[in-house]
Design a protein around this nucleic acid. Structure first.
Length: 432
DNA sequence: GGAATGGATGAGAATGGCGG
DNA sequence: CCGCCATTCTCATCCATTCC
């Protein structure tokens, strides 16, 4: 055990020295050992491989790596994943390429993969020193695919994987990863943070939500330039930063997975969320049909919405309307009006929705016309406040149309009642 | 510069109530 | 039964975003 610990510590040290850029310039370029990499050879040729072991208890940002152990299954809700998700059957995946297109001119010069073993998280980085090494690298990763069931990436569905498949075709290799289900974390990230983060780029997400702060990171957009420079000068130190960048990307994929999983099982994390995140989470659980989680988050959300921003009652009401639970929608619209009705500028949607509800479902035209008139009043306020009122005059016309219709309906109902009472009277007379 | 994705927006069909 | 109108449901289409 202590032997293992020693070994881990030793590995940790070498890795730290690489990360701290102790790759010093007095060791003249050319030696791959300097970046902690070795030459790997297989039946198709050679390429360079760097392997890093990270102990599972290591904390990356806010979360330790071991948190995914035994709890990866929840990730299946993020995309329509059918098979069981096990942490040690997931292959985290990110490439560095010579450009952004997925056409033939774009070459992946580095493939970064990450996976869990019993005692560590392993990052393997495959790098080609020239185009002729690509085939050997592809063959290597092809064999790796066999040991996993799920691929995890960030925008990999549109970028990394199509590109990689193209390379297989160009090299006349059969892609052996068709069995892999693909979890692309970009989409859940966007649906959760589209409003609360200015951008959902991986580097921004990890800094703002995972507590991971990169130091001296080279942006991905620098990768092509650095690689071309390497091709000319053949000094591994030139691409040392690309290795480091790619490694963080891979590790971030694991930590982001942990974060998502925690949303499904650690209900105490909800109190740290921004209001909009909590709302988006509510939408998640509703769409995923996880009723318990939905109910829990919904209740938490409503108490916060009252204090922080009653406007959220409106989309929430629409969720229940879609679920055909209109009574709940009605209570939310009314709650909104109760809290916001006094404001000069206010969304009229709840008034209109309530008017529809009373006209069409309850046939209570008086209530319907009451809410219509309330809406009309608010729009008047708007128009008097703004010069550019084209939009609001249209809304106003719509409202007045509704009002006129309701007035007619009320009138005709009064007539109906009169006629009915006349009929009743006649019947009484006949009976007499 | 290519493409999967989800959200927003819109068009068209289906529904349903109402009056003639 | 038919025409009219408002609403709702279902697709279709568009648009921005993200990867290096």
């Amino acid at each position: 055990m202590s032997q293992l610990k020693n070994r881990l510590n030793r590995l940790k040290k070498t890795q730290a020295s690489i990360d701290n850029k102790v790759i010093s310039s007095h060791l003249k370029g050319g030696e791959w050992g300097e970046v902690g990499a070795v030459t790997k050879t297989n039946a198709y040729g050679s390429f360079v491989k760097r392997e890093i072991r990270i102990p599972l208890q290591e904390k990356i940002g806010f979360y330790p790596l071991y948190q995914l152990v035994g709890s990866a299954q929840a990730l299946s809700h993020l995309q329509s994943i059918k098979s069981n998700v096990l942490h040690d059957k997931m292959l985290f995946f990110d490439t560095e390429t010579t450009g952004l297109g997925i056409g033939a001119g774009n070459v992946p010069f580095m493939l970064g993969i990450g996976y869990y073993t019993d005692d560590a998280f392993i990052v393997e980085q495959l790098f080609i020193r020239n185009p002729s090494e690509e085939l050997a690298m592809l063959a290597y990763i092809n064999e790796k695919f066999q040991h996993f069931t799920h691929l995890v990436s960030y925008n990999g569905k549109t970028f990394d994987l199509p590109l990689l498949k193209n390379r297989f075709i160009i090299h006349r290799l059969t892609y052996e990863g068709e069995h892999l289900e693909h979890i692309d974390l970009l989409y859940p990230a966007r649906s959760l943070w589209r409003n609360s983060l200015t951008t959902c780029k991986l580097s921004h997400v990890e800094r703002k939500r995972l507590g991971i702060h990169r130091v001296d990171d080279v942006p991905g957009s620098m990768a092509p330039t650095l690689y071309f420079k390497y091709l000319i000068e053949k000094d591994p130190n030139i691409v040392a930063d690309v290795f480091r960048h790619n490694k963080v990307d891979i590790v971030t994929l694991a930590i982001l997975s942990i974060y998502f999983v925690s949303l499904f099982e650690k209900r105490d994390v909800y109190s740290n969320l921004e209001l909009d995140e909590l709302y988006r989470l509510c939408v998640w659980f509703n769409n995923m049909e996880l009723t318990d989680l939905f109910q829990y988050v919904y209740e938490l959300l409503t108490t916060r919405v009252i204090e922080e921003d009653p406007n959220y009652f409106i989309p929430l009401a629409m969720i229940f309307k879609k679920k055909k639970d209109v009574e709940t929608s009605v209570s939310l619209w009314k709650k909104f009006i109760e809290l916001q009705g006094h404001q000069r500028i206010i969304n009229t949607e709840p008034y209109i929705e309530l008017a529809k509800y009373y006209e069409h479902r309850k046939k209570d035209f008086k209530q319907a016309i009451y809410y219509t008139k309330e809406a009309e009043l608010r729009v008047y306020n708007r128009i008097s406040l703004s010069k550019r009122n084209q939009k609001y005059t249209e809304i106003l016309q719509e409202i007045q149309k509704r009002k006129n219709r309701l007035e007619k309906k009320i009138k005709s109902r009064v007539n109906e009642v009169d006629q009915n009472s006349v009929v009743e009277l006649r019947q009484v007379e006949m009976n007499v």
